[in-house]
Design a protein around this nucleic acid. Structure first.
Lengths: 157, 157
DNA sequence: ATGGCATCGTGCGTACACGAACAATATGGG
DNA sequence: CCCATATTGTTCGTGTACGCACGATGCCAT
């Protein structure tokens, strides 16, 4: 068990003027979001029940489970992924036979995606642990704070 | 100008039972953190003033500016990056002559990192825009909500 | 009907993110 | 002093994430 705190090697140069509020990277929203997202991903990985499924793969499969069949671009919009990113996610899911695709008969530009039987089985298993992932991630907060955080994050997206 | 909302192609299969609360991926903390982080990164990129500097490179340089000289591992702990990730970040900063390194005279395992003059000049320029990045990211919230979000995120890290 | 513009999926390049394995070095307890 | 254990930094593999450019296709207004 090692300390999570950095050994103090050196003092920071305090460039604080008396009036200006200090700019601390640890208090900036972007920094906090990066760290919080890291922690959430780590909790997902150990809690969801299958170490080979990533958060983005999971959300893609959950959406395909809801809609049955979706084009790749539309799926990307629904789960907030760039089409280039979506490409890689879908490729890996197809390689594992969790997702299948067929050309859209009504639009030759599109590929329709759907879960395989295997993919359905897996996502329904993972969905059981879904709430536990969120619960564990939000554990440091009380119920009211949890609701508030969800609400605030929804607002800034 | 195209709509950001997906065209409705198909209804989701409503699998809602009357009692159980629906599991919506859009309300899960991990999903929201991923989306919020995406947005924050995009705002950083267009607001910080140098499109070639990433958020992680920025936070590394800010920390090096505070401490003058740090080992790679310690810097990684201070900014919340894995040592393998840190490796790549530092390599790119060194390639651009923004960061310099020397062996630690007191510990042959360590490499001491510091900003070059060029790196100092750049980070001090970027620090001017730092507050604007955070301000823009938090724009959808009022001041009280902004403070609250920062506080809640700090708690779950 | 056709020409301009948007959309869809792909490929490439760059950058985080991290687990795992590794070699070199440091440290502390017996 | 010496050995078990820990730390530091590197490399490899896999997976997001996205900008850009491309070709194929669809759509719409003239």
């Amino acid at each position: 068990m090692r300390s999570n705190v950095a050994r103090k090697q050196q003092e920071p140069k305090s460039a604080a003027s008396p009036t200006a509020r200090a700019y601390r990277i640890e208090e900036q929203i972007g920094y906090l979001l990066r760290r919080a997202h890291q922690r959430a991903s780590a909790i997902f990985q150990v809690t969801v029940g299958d170490p080979n499924i990533t958060p983005t793969q999971y959300s893609s499969m959950v959406k395909l489970n809801e809609y049955t069949e979706l084009s790749q671009n539309l799926l990307g919009r629904l789960v907030g992924m760039d089409k280039a990113t979506m490409q890689g996610v879908v490729r890996r899911l197809k390689e594992r036979r969790l997702v299948d695709s067929r050309p859209d008969p009504g639009d030759a530009r599109r590929t329709l995606l759907s879960l395989t039987t295997e993919g359905q089985r897996l996502v329904n298993k993972l969905l059981i642990n879904g709430p536990a992932v969120s619960r564990e991630t939000l554990k440091p907060l009380n119920v009211q704070e949890q609701r508030h955080l969800i609400e605030l994050l929804s607002k800034i997206i």
